[in-house]
Design a protein around this nucleic acid. Structure first.
Lengths: 111, 111
DNA sequence: TCTATATATCTATATATTTATATCTTTATA
DNA sequence: TATAAAGATATAAATATATAGATATATAGA
């Protein structure tokens, strides 16, 4: 029935969001927006242990957010879809809106 | 320093995403897009126990995603920002893109 | 007191991190 | 060619922490 399908869809959406729901993965996604990069380069640039970067990239890969391409001993990761970057921008805008609201609230409280 | 601020920002974004990262909350957000609603109505409509709905709404409220307004014994919840709905639409589009890719892959494998 | 909502406690499950080790690929060398 | 060493990445095990759901109970307002 319809509600079952919906539940599946909601679950998929939730899992997609879950893949964004970690600070390190946010950093990785942001870094990958500038172009593909290797595990090692990301680890050095973001100052995150290699195993942690590899683990998080695997999560992004498993959820279809990132893609991997091997070249020699290196593995290059990239975002699977530019919309992923746009989604992060949207999160940013929502956060800005929240700050704005708090600012308004603060100003009203002071006045 | 800059990297600390960034970490904070990434953490905020991650927490925002975390608030979206549950099927029930996806359902609640989707329901709230149609307009404000009470805890009880949402619980009945979505067939989720009252305590669970209340809990999830509290999470959305704490993270600034939803707002609450009391009217008598009822509490009306609503989305704090229409951009939240748009963010969900974007997730939907990303999912569609993934399905599309899988379809292409499947067709290539068959051929 | 009744209704609607929130919360506390308990339990089960999921998640992230650390450390160590395994795998895969290239390169060097006997 | 076979093999060993080195570099890059992935994975496993252990631990700590976070999260969700169920049930019962507390709180707020009519």
């Amino acid at each position: 029935m319809a509600s079952d399908h919906s539940l599946e869809l909601y679950t998929l959406k939730a899992e997609l969001c879950k893949s964004f729901a970690d600070p390190r993965r946010q950093m990785l996604i942001d870094a990958l927006r500038k172009g593909e990069s290797t595990v090692g380069n990301l680890a050095r640039a973001l100052e995150i242990p290699q195993a942690v970067v590899s683990r998080h990239l695997a999560i992004l890969r498993e959820r279809g957010v990132a893609s991997a391409r091997r070249e020699g001993t290196n593995v290059y990761y990239s975002l699977s879809d530019p919309k992923i970057g746009e989604a992060c921008d949207m999160m940013h805008q929502i956060l800005l809106g929240q700050v704005e609201k708090n600012k308004e609230l603060a100003e009203r409280l002071i006045a």
